[in-house]
């Protein structure tokens, strides 16, 4: 069984600054990590490999520094890693990103058929949860999002059964391979990197693919990077939500009891709906 796991390197901190002129995000000096949601996808893939054998290939699209994320993934036990990197990819939105990733996966398929593609639920920097569905559509693979549990995989029958989180319940779904799975967080824990894997990860010859190597023809340059992105950021700004300072509750006695009584009476006067809501509870 061959599983491709798509990961993304993201900045680790909320300390993000915006370039005052270009409105782009300045990542310099912010430590980079593997998107935490992707680790659940990688661990799930490694578990399936433990059970069924096979190969786990990790891929990422990003700047050359994203190599660190791939080496980390190798140290956890991934077999192979591909970094898709080219200036032409810069500025990609979710549509352009899914085009590039799908194209690279098609290249991978030429050497070894792919049974499943795994992604995290979403990234912590973009938060869109849209790249997985996009890649699935482009590869014409069945899409299973928000998968909380892989119930069974039968490689011989080309079949998979999963539990998918829906609003208000869980769907038990059966589909055919190949498929794309976005893995929900919290249902597994990333294993520790062992010594042999750490050594292997350090020495592993990483594949670096530029645009052509990722299978994107000259004609398709308009589908990647900035050019291939229908959405355009018109403004980036720091949140300055409606700021109305709280009315501070002060009582002469300084007694918490008096504070509590004061805040309740103020609130019930100004918010009759809250009083009504609480009165409901008395019945």
């Amino acid at each position: 069984m061959h599983i491709v796991v798509c990961i993304k390197q993201v900045p680790d901190s909320a300390q993000i600054r915006v370039h005052p002129v270009t409105n782009t995000i300045m990542r310099q000096g912010v430590p980079a990590i593997i998107n935490p949601y992707d680790l659940f996808a990688l661990e799930e893939a490694l578990c399936l490999k433990d059970k069924h054998g096979g190969t786990v290939t990790v891929i990422t699209m990003g700047p050359p520094q994203a190599e660190a994320a791939l080496r980390k993934a190798l140290s956890f036990g991934a077999d192979d890693a591909i970094l898709i990197t080219d200036r032409a990819f810069a500025g990609a939105d979710t549509l352009a990103t899914s085009f590039a990733l799908a194209s690279a996966i098609r290249q991978i398929q030429k050497n070894m058929p792919v049974d499943m593609v795994f992604t995290g639920k979403q990234t912590i920097d973009g938060d869109t949860a849209q790249v997985g569905p996009g890649v699935a559509k482009r590869l014409d693979m069945q899409l299973l999002t928000y998968v909380s549990k892989i119930v069974a995989v039968k490689p011989e029958a080309s079949e998979i059964v999963v539990e998918r989180r829906a609003e208000g319940g869980v769907q038990l779904l059966k589909t055919s391979l190949p498929c794309l799975v976005t893995v929900l967080e919290g249902n597994n824990q990333m294993r520790f990197a062992n010594m042999p894997n750490m050594f292997r990860a350090a020495r592993h010859p990483l594949k670096l693919w530029n645009r052509e190597e990722a299978g994107i023809a000259d004609d398709d340059i308009v589908k990647i990077g900035l050019k291939g992105s229908p959405t355009v950021v018109s403004k980036v700004f720091a949140p300055t939500p409606k700021s109305e300072r709280a009315e501070m509750i002060e009582v002469e006695s300084g007694d918490p009891k008096d504070m509590a009584v004061t805040v309740l009476s103020k609130m019930f006067t100004r918010f009759p709906a809250v009083e009504k809501e609480i009165a409901k509870r008395a019945r």
Partner: peptide, 12 residues
């Protein structure tokens, strides 16, 4: 975006 540290306005 970026975990709520920033807001961005996007047009298509």
């Amino acid at each position: 975006t970026f975990g709520g540290s920033l807001l961005c306005t996007i047009v298509t």
